[in-house]
Write a protein that binds this DNA or RNA. Structure first.
Lengths: 155, 155
DNA sequence: GCGCCTAACGCGACCTCGTTGCAAGAGCGA
DNA sequence: TCGCTCTTGCAACGAGGTCGCGTTAGGCGC
Protein backbone atom coordinates (compact mmCIF):
# COMPACT_ATOMS: atom_id res chain seq x y z
CA UNK A 1 0.00 0.00 0.00
CA UNK A 2 1.03 3.61 -0.39
CA UNK A 3 1.78 5.78 2.62
CA UNK A 4 -1.35 5.95 4.74
CA UNK A 5 -2.29 9.37 6.10
CA UNK A 6 -1.12 9.77 9.68
CA UNK A 7 -3.52 12.27 11.16
CA UNK A 8 -4.79 13.04 14.66
CA UNK A 9 -7.41 10.60 15.74
CA UNK A 10 -11.01 11.70 15.56
CA UNK A 11 -13.13 12.47 18.58
CA UNK A 12 -16.47 10.73 18.48
CA UNK A 13 -18.93 9.01 20.76
CA UNK A 14 -21.65 7.76 18.43
CA UNK A 15 -22.11 6.75 14.82
CA UNK A 16 -23.39 10.10 13.59
CA UNK A 17 -20.62 12.03 15.32
CA UNK A 18 -18.08 9.74 13.73
CA UNK A 19 -19.70 10.15 10.32
CA UNK A 20 -19.76 13.94 10.66
CA UNK A 21 -16.13 14.05 11.77
CA UNK A 22 -15.05 11.83 8.89
CA UNK A 23 -16.94 14.05 6.46
CA UNK A 24 -15.10 17.07 7.83
CA UNK A 25 -11.87 15.29 7.03
CA UNK A 26 -12.97 15.15 3.41
CA UNK A 27 -13.97 11.49 3.38
CA UNK A 28 -17.09 10.49 1.51
CA UNK A 29 -19.59 8.49 3.47
CA UNK A 30 -20.48 5.82 0.95
CA UNK A 31 -22.98 3.10 1.70
CA UNK A 32 -20.29 0.42 2.27
CA UNK A 33 -18.34 2.74 4.54
CA UNK A 34 -21.43 3.53 6.60
CA UNK A 35 -22.34 -0.16 6.81
CA UNK A 36 -18.89 -1.06 8.11
CA UNK A 37 -19.10 1.66 10.75
CA UNK A 38 -22.60 0.57 11.79
CA UNK A 39 -21.49 -3.04 12.12
CA UNK A 40 -18.51 -2.08 14.26
CA UNK A 41 -20.67 0.18 16.46
CA UNK A 42 -23.18 -2.66 16.86
CA UNK A 43 -20.65 -5.36 17.76
CA UNK A 44 -19.46 -6.18 21.26
CA UNK A 45 -16.42 -7.98 19.93
CA UNK A 46 -13.80 -7.30 17.26
CA UNK A 47 -14.74 -8.54 13.80
CA UNK A 48 -12.72 -9.94 10.92
CA UNK A 49 -12.85 -8.42 7.45
CA UNK A 50 -14.40 -11.64 6.20
CA UNK A 51 -17.19 -11.43 8.81
CA UNK A 52 -17.89 -7.86 7.81
CA UNK A 53 -17.90 -8.52 4.08
CA UNK A 54 -20.11 -11.58 4.29
CA UNK A 55 -22.57 -10.10 6.79
CA UNK A 56 -22.85 -6.84 4.91
CA UNK A 57 -22.70 -8.28 1.40
CA UNK A 58 -19.65 -6.19 0.51
CA UNK A 59 -16.55 -6.91 -1.50
CA UNK A 60 -13.68 -7.95 0.75
CA UNK A 61 -11.31 -5.49 -0.93
CA UNK A 62 -13.71 -2.66 -0.11
CA UNK A 63 -13.93 -3.77 3.48
CA UNK A 64 -10.14 -3.95 3.80
CA UNK A 65 -9.75 -0.51 2.22
CA UNK A 66 -12.38 0.97 4.50
CA UNK A 67 -10.86 -0.53 7.59
CA UNK A 68 -7.47 0.83 6.56
CA UNK A 69 -8.89 4.30 5.98
CA UNK A 70 -10.85 4.31 9.23
CA UNK A 71 -7.78 3.10 11.11
CA UNK A 72 -5.65 5.84 9.55
CA UNK A 73 -8.15 8.34 10.97
CA UNK A 74 -8.07 6.79 14.42
CA UNK A 75 -11.64 5.48 14.34
CA UNK A 76 -10.78 1.80 14.12
CA UNK A 77 -7.94 -0.39 15.40
CA UNK A 78 -7.10 -4.03 14.86
CA UNK A 79 -5.45 -6.86 16.76
CA UNK A 80 -3.85 -10.16 15.76
CA UNK A 81 -4.89 -13.03 17.98
CA UNK A 82 -2.88 -16.18 17.34
CA UNK A 83 -2.89 -17.27 13.70
CA UNK A 84 -6.36 -16.16 12.69
CA UNK A 85 -7.31 -13.17 10.57
CA UNK A 86 -6.88 -9.68 11.99
CA UNK A 87 -9.84 -8.49 14.07
CA UNK A 88 -11.16 -4.94 13.89
CA UNK A 89 -12.92 -2.80 16.48
CA UNK A 90 -13.84 0.78 17.19
CA UNK A 91 -11.26 2.79 19.06
CA UNK A 92 -12.08 3.94 22.55
CA UNK A 93 -14.03 2.93 25.61
CA UNK A 94 -11.10 1.43 27.49
CA UNK A 95 -10.98 -2.21 26.44
CA UNK A 96 -8.12 -2.53 24.02
CA UNK A 97 -5.54 -5.05 25.24
CA UNK A 98 -5.83 -8.80 25.22
CA UNK A 99 -4.64 -12.01 26.81
CA UNK A 100 -4.76 -14.83 24.28
CA UNK A 101 -4.81 -18.47 25.40
CA UNK A 102 -2.74 -20.58 23.02
CA UNK A 103 -4.45 -23.73 24.24
CA UNK A 104 -8.18 -23.00 24.09
CA UNK A 105 -8.06 -19.90 21.90
CA UNK A 106 -9.91 -17.91 24.54
CA UNK A 107 -9.45 -14.15 24.71
CA UNK A 108 -9.62 -11.88 27.73
CA UNK A 109 -10.07 -8.17 27.01
CA UNK A 110 -8.49 -5.68 29.38
CA UNK A 111 -8.35 -1.93 29.91
CA UNK A 112 -4.81 -0.63 29.29
CA UNK A 113 -4.29 0.27 32.97
CA UNK A 114 -4.72 -3.38 33.91
CA UNK A 115 -1.41 -4.17 32.25
CA UNK A 116 0.53 -1.12 33.44
CA UNK A 117 2.54 -3.10 36.00
CA UNK A 118 3.51 -5.53 33.26
CA UNK A 119 4.59 -2.70 30.97
CA UNK A 120 6.55 -1.23 33.88
CA UNK A 121 8.32 -4.53 34.51
CA UNK A 122 9.39 -4.82 30.85
CA UNK A 123 10.57 -1.19 30.81
CA UNK A 124 12.51 -1.51 34.05
CA UNK A 125 14.18 -4.76 33.05
CA UNK A 126 14.92 -4.14 29.40
CA UNK A 127 14.17 -0.50 28.52
CA UNK A 128 11.48 -1.69 26.12
CA UNK A 129 8.04 -0.03 25.74
CA UNK A 130 5.68 -2.99 25.49
CA UNK A 131 2.34 -2.56 23.70
CA UNK A 132 -0.28 -5.27 23.86
CA UNK A 133 -2.88 -3.54 21.68
CA UNK A 134 -1.78 -4.92 18.35
CA UNK A 135 -0.16 -8.20 19.40
CA UNK A 136 -1.58 -9.59 22.65
CA UNK A 137 0.07 -11.44 25.49
CA UNK A 138 -0.01 -15.14 24.60
CA UNK A 139 0.09 -18.01 27.04
CA UNK A 140 -2.26 -20.24 29.00
CA UNK A 141 -5.46 -18.98 30.61
CA UNK A 142 -6.08 -19.87 34.27
CA UNK A 143 -8.32 -22.82 33.32
CA UNK A 144 -5.92 -24.39 30.86
CA UNK A 145 -2.95 -23.80 33.16
CA UNK A 146 -4.76 -25.34 36.16
CA UNK A 147 -5.88 -28.46 34.33
CA UNK A 148 -2.46 -28.83 32.72
CA UNK A 149 -4.28 -28.82 29.44
CA UNK A 150 -2.30 -27.60 26.48
CA UNK A 151 -3.90 -28.54 23.25
CA UNK A 152 -1.06 -26.97 21.38
CA UNK A 153 -3.43 -25.05 19.21
CA UNK A 154 -2.32 -23.58 15.90
CA UNK A 155 1.41 -23.18 15.95
CA UNK B 1 -2.66 -31.35 9.79
CA UNK B 2 -3.34 -34.54 11.65
CA UNK B 3 -2.53 -34.92 15.35
CA UNK B 4 1.20 -34.45 15.76
CA UNK B 5 3.00 -36.84 18.07
CA UNK B 6 3.51 -35.30 21.49
CA UNK B 7 6.55 -37.01 22.84
CA UNK B 8 9.23 -36.12 25.39
CA UNK B 9 11.79 -33.79 23.97
CA UNK B 10 15.07 -35.25 22.90
CA UNK B 11 18.32 -34.69 24.70
CA UNK B 12 21.10 -33.63 22.40
CA UNK B 13 24.05 -31.29 22.27
CA UNK B 14 25.43 -31.71 18.78
CA UNK B 15 24.26 -32.70 15.33
CA UNK B 16 25.32 -36.34 15.58
CA UNK B 17 23.72 -36.78 19.00
CA UNK B 18 20.49 -35.33 17.65
CA UNK B 19 20.62 -37.59 14.60
CA UNK B 20 21.23 -40.65 16.75
CA UNK B 21 18.41 -39.75 19.13
CA UNK B 22 16.00 -39.18 16.24
CA UNK B 23 16.96 -42.52 14.74
CA UNK B 24 16.19 -44.21 18.06
CA UNK B 25 12.75 -42.70 17.85
CA UNK B 26 12.24 -44.53 14.57
CA UNK B 27 12.75 -41.53 12.33
CA UNK B 28 14.67 -41.96 9.12
CA UNK B 29 17.53 -39.56 8.58
CA UNK B 30 17.00 -38.64 4.97
CA UNK B 31 19.29 -36.26 3.15
CA UNK B 32 16.79 -33.35 3.32
CA UNK B 33 16.22 -33.95 7.03
CA UNK B 34 19.92 -33.97 7.73
CA UNK B 35 20.42 -30.83 5.66
CA UNK B 36 17.73 -28.99 7.62
CA UNK B 37 19.31 -30.02 10.90
CA UNK B 38 22.77 -28.99 9.71
CA UNK B 39 21.50 -25.60 8.60
CA UNK B 40 19.80 -25.00 11.94
CA UNK B 41 22.90 -26.09 13.86
CA UNK B 42 25.01 -23.76 11.72
CA UNK B 43 22.78 -20.70 12.07
CA UNK B 44 23.09 -18.10 14.82
CA UNK B 45 19.57 -16.85 14.13
CA UNK B 46 16.18 -18.46 13.52
CA UNK B 47 15.48 -19.24 9.87
CA UNK B 48 12.31 -19.21 7.79
CA UNK B 49 11.16 -22.27 5.85
CA UNK B 50 11.69 -20.32 2.65
CA UNK B 51 15.31 -19.52 3.61
CA UNK B 52 15.93 -23.18 4.36
CA UNK B 53 14.34 -24.49 1.18
CA UNK B 54 16.09 -22.03 -1.11
CA UNK B 55 19.51 -22.33 0.54
CA UNK B 56 19.36 -26.10 0.64
CA UNK B 57 17.62 -26.61 -2.69
CA UNK B 58 14.73 -28.47 -1.07
CA UNK B 59 11.03 -28.50 -1.70
CA UNK B 60 9.23 -26.13 0.66
CA UNK B 61 6.67 -28.78 1.59
CA UNK B 62 9.48 -31.11 2.64
CA UNK B 63 11.04 -28.37 4.73
CA UNK B 64 7.73 -27.59 6.44
CA UNK B 65 7.10 -31.28 7.13
CA UNK B 66 10.59 -31.76 8.52
CA UNK B 67 10.31 -28.71 10.75
CA UNK B 68 6.96 -29.97 12.02
CA UNK B 69 8.40 -33.41 12.74
CA UNK B 70 11.50 -32.03 14.42
CA UNK B 71 9.36 -29.68 16.50
CA UNK B 72 7.08 -32.55 17.55
CA UNK B 73 10.19 -34.29 18.87
CA UNK B 74 11.37 -31.23 20.73
CA UNK B 75 14.44 -30.60 18.59
CA UNK B 76 13.15 -27.43 16.92
CA UNK B 77 10.86 -24.58 17.94
CA UNK B 78 9.47 -21.62 16.04
CA UNK B 79 8.45 -18.05 16.75
CA UNK B 80 6.23 -15.52 14.96
CA UNK B 81 7.77 -12.07 14.85
CA UNK B 82 5.32 -9.46 13.62
CA UNK B 83 3.74 -10.32 10.28
CA UNK B 84 6.64 -12.16 8.70
CA UNK B 85 6.97 -15.88 8.14
CA UNK B 86 7.51 -18.19 11.10
CA UNK B 87 11.16 -18.54 12.10
CA UNK B 88 12.65 -21.83 13.20
CA UNK B 89 15.55 -22.59 15.53
CA UNK B 90 17.07 -25.42 17.49
CA UNK B 91 15.74 -25.89 20.99
CA UNK B 92 18.06 -25.24 23.90
CA UNK B 93 20.92 -23.06 24.95
CA UNK B 94 18.81 -20.51 26.81
CA UNK B 95 17.88 -17.89 24.27
CA UNK B 96 14.26 -18.47 23.40
CA UNK B 97 12.15 -15.42 24.14
CA UNK B 98 11.99 -12.23 22.15
CA UNK B 99 11.19 -8.54 22.28
CA UNK B 100 9.97 -7.38 18.88
CA UNK B 101 10.05 -3.69 17.94
CA UNK B 102 6.98 -2.79 15.87
CA UNK B 103 8.71 0.33 14.58
CA UNK B 104 12.11 -0.80 13.34
CA UNK B 105 11.46 -4.54 13.22
CA UNK B 106 14.42 -5.17 15.51
CA UNK B 107 14.48 -8.28 17.66
CA UNK B 108 16.11 -8.78 21.04
CA UNK B 109 16.61 -12.37 22.15
CA UNK B 110 16.42 -13.17 25.85
CA UNK B 111 16.93 -16.10 28.14
CA UNK B 112 13.61 -17.15 29.73
CA UNK B 113 14.70 -16.05 33.22
CA UNK B 114 15.05 -12.48 31.99
CA UNK B 115 11.28 -12.26 31.64
CA UNK B 116 10.35 -14.08 34.83
CA UNK B 117 9.30 -10.88 36.65
CA UNK B 118 7.05 -10.06 33.70
CA UNK B 119 5.48 -13.49 33.77
CA UNK B 120 5.01 -13.13 37.52
CA UNK B 121 3.28 -9.77 37.09
CA UNK B 122 0.83 -11.20 34.56
CA UNK B 123 0.15 -14.21 36.76
CA UNK B 124 -0.37 -12.13 39.91
CA UNK B 125 -2.64 -9.63 38.19
CA UNK B 126 -4.69 -11.89 35.96
CA UNK B 127 -3.98 -15.55 36.78
CA UNK B 128 -2.60 -16.00 33.28
CA UNK B 129 0.54 -17.99 32.42
CA UNK B 130 2.26 -15.83 29.83
CA UNK B 131 4.64 -17.45 27.34
CA UNK B 132 6.79 -15.32 25.08
CA UNK B 133 8.45 -18.18 23.22
CA UNK B 134 5.98 -18.51 20.40
CA UNK B 135 4.56 -14.98 20.23
CA UNK B 136 7.01 -12.34 21.49
CA UNK B 137 6.43 -9.14 23.42
CA UNK B 138 5.74 -6.42 20.87
CA UNK B 139 6.30 -2.71 21.36
CA UNK B 140 9.01 -0.10 20.85
CA UNK B 141 12.67 -0.75 21.46
CA UNK B 142 14.61 1.75 23.58
CA UNK B 143 15.95 3.56 20.52
CA UNK B 144 12.61 3.97 18.79
CA UNK B 145 10.89 4.95 22.04
CA UNK B 146 13.57 7.53 22.89
CA UNK B 147 13.50 9.20 19.51
CA UNK B 148 9.72 9.11 19.46
CA UNK B 149 10.06 7.28 16.20
CA UNK B 150 7.19 4.98 15.31
CA UNK B 151 7.22 4.04 11.70
CA UNK B 152 4.06 2.08 12.18
CA UNK B 153 5.57 -0.88 10.43
CA UNK B 154 3.38 -3.65 9.05
CA UNK B 155 0.07 -3.58 10.80
C1' DG C 1 25.50 -57.07 0.36
C1' DC C 2 20.38 -57.54 -1.11
C1' DG C 3 15.41 -56.89 -0.84
C1' DC C 4 11.61 -55.19 1.03
C1' DC C 5 8.62 -52.21 3.58
C1' DT C 6 7.24 -47.89 4.30
C1' DA C 7 8.71 -43.21 5.80
C1' DA C 8 9.88 -39.38 3.41
C1' DC C 9 10.31 -36.92 -0.91
C1' DG C 10 9.09 -33.75 -4.87
C1' DC C 11 5.58 -31.94 -7.50
C1' DG C 12 1.49 -29.55 -8.23
C1' DA C 13 -2.82 -28.11 -6.66
C1' DC C 14 -4.97 -25.82 -3.15
C1' DC C 15 -6.11 -22.79 0.97
C1' DT C 16 -6.34 -18.44 3.74
C1' DC C 17 -5.52 -13.79 4.38
C1' DG C 18 -4.76 -9.83 2.25
C1' DT C 19 -3.36 -6.38 -1.74
C1' DT C 20 -3.47 -4.23 -6.30
C1' DG C 21 -5.04 -2.55 -11.03
C1' DC C 22 -8.69 -0.81 -13.36
C1' DA C 23 -13.07 0.54 -15.35
C1' DA C 24 -17.61 1.84 -13.66
C1' DG C 25 -20.34 4.15 -10.26
C1' DA C 26 -21.74 7.36 -6.69
C1' DG C 27 -20.78 11.38 -3.00
C1' DC C 28 -21.25 15.92 -2.47
C1' DG C 29 -19.60 20.89 -3.31
C1' DA C 30 -20.52 24.38 -6.76
C1' DT D 1 -28.05 19.37 -11.74
C1' DC D 2 -23.22 18.91 -13.10
C1' DG D 3 -19.05 17.03 -12.78
C1' DC D 4 -14.87 16.09 -10.32
C1' DT D 5 -12.85 12.54 -8.01
C1' DC D 6 -13.24 9.34 -4.26
C1' DT D 7 -14.89 4.80 -3.73
C1' DT D 8 -16.62 0.54 -5.38
C1' DG D 9 -16.71 -4.29 -7.31
C1' DC D 10 -14.39 -7.48 -9.86
C1' DA D 11 -10.55 -10.16 -10.97
C1' DA D 12 -5.95 -11.17 -10.76
C1' DC D 13 -2.17 -11.53 -7.90
C1' DG D 14 1.12 -12.56 -3.80
C1' DA D 15 2.86 -14.40 0.54
C1' DG D 16 2.78 -18.06 3.65
C1' DG D 17 1.57 -22.51 4.37
C1' DT D 18 -0.92 -27.32 3.62
C1' DC D 19 -2.43 -31.58 1.20
C1' DG D 20 -2.79 -35.60 -2.06
C1' DC D 21 -0.36 -38.63 -4.60
C1' DG D 22 2.84 -41.28 -7.16
C1' DT D 23 7.89 -42.12 -6.66
C1' DT D 24 12.27 -42.59 -4.15
C1' DA D 25 15.26 -44.14 -0.84
C1' DG D 26 16.40 -45.22 4.40
C1' DG D 27 17.62 -48.97 7.02
C1' DC D 28 16.17 -53.50 9.18
C1' DG D 29 16.13 -58.48 8.41
C1' DC D 30 18.19 -61.81 6.07
Amino acid sequence: MTEAPRVPRLEFTGLEEAVAALRERGLRISTPRRLVLEALFASEVPLSAEQLSSRLGLDTASVYRNLETLEAHGVVRHVHLGHGPGLHALVGHGVCEYLYCESCGGVRALAPAELDPVRDAVRDLHGFEARFTHFPIAGLCADCARTGRDRGGPT
